[in-house]
């Protein structure tokens, strides 16, 4: 297996929040009937995490299960384990109308850290980032400026943002601009 290459080689920026390119992260796209018991068992056994509810993000370290839509999950596994995890899921879902694909290299991931987190995110997406509207552990698929993005909060000062690999550079520059120390807002803080 060749060495994984991050889209931006591990770019970082320190501003209102600390922006850091994360990964490589193993990601498996899983489409199927999320209410099916066999599917749920396969996913929970593989990740050791419970099934997420609507818009849920169940994440622990490099493993996770993200609710992407009523018939789609994004399963997170350590990068090196993705091919085996894909095979394991495909095997478990044999005979079912389901799709399992290793998409680890399809997306870029960023980790944002800092107390101004909600302000920085709110500059970029048409989403209410107030604490009660967007609690930790909830996945929001949306757009950041002009590109599709997904975001979830790990805790009040940490967020994980992902987008397609082809727009990684655009996303990083957006996040840096929104986190510029001269662009302090102070709306969500406190």
């Amino acid at each position: 297996m060749s060495d994984p290459v991050l889209p931006l080689g591990g770019a970082q920026y320190e501003g209102l929040v600390d922006v850091r390119e994360a990964g490589p992260q193993g990601m498996i796209a899983l489409r199927g009937d999320l209410a099916d018991e066999r599917l749920q068992e396969a996913v929970t056994q593989l990740t050791g995490l419970p099934m997420p509810g609507v818009r849920g993000a169940q994440v622990m370290g490099e493993s996770g299960v993200l609710w992407m839509s009523p018939d789609e999950l994004l399963v997170l596994v350590p990068y090196r384990q993705a091919p085996r995890a894909r095979a394991q899921l495909a095997e478990a879902l044999q005979g079912q109308h389901a799709l399992v694909e290793n998409v680890s290299d399809m997306r870029a991931m960023f980790r944002l850290r800092g107390t101004q987190l909600r302000d920085v995110l709110a500059k970029l997406a048409p989403v209410d980032f107030a604490r009660d509207a967007m609690p930790a552990g909830e996945l929001r698929r949306t757009r950041f400026a002009q590109v599709a993005a997904g975001v979830w909060l790990v805790d009040d000062t940490t967020a994980q943002v992902f987008c397609f690999r082809s727009v990684a550079d655009y996303m990083f520059k957006l996040l840096c601009a929104a986190a510029d120390p001269d662009a302090f807002v102070g709306f969500h803080a406190g």
């Binding site: 818009r55 839509s69 009523p70 048409p126 989403v127 209410d128 929001r140 698929r141 949306t142 757009r143």
Partner: peptide
Amino acid sequence: PYCGVQADETEL
């Protein structure tokens, strides 16, 4: 109706 979010026009 599927994911339950308040989606503004620019997400649609």
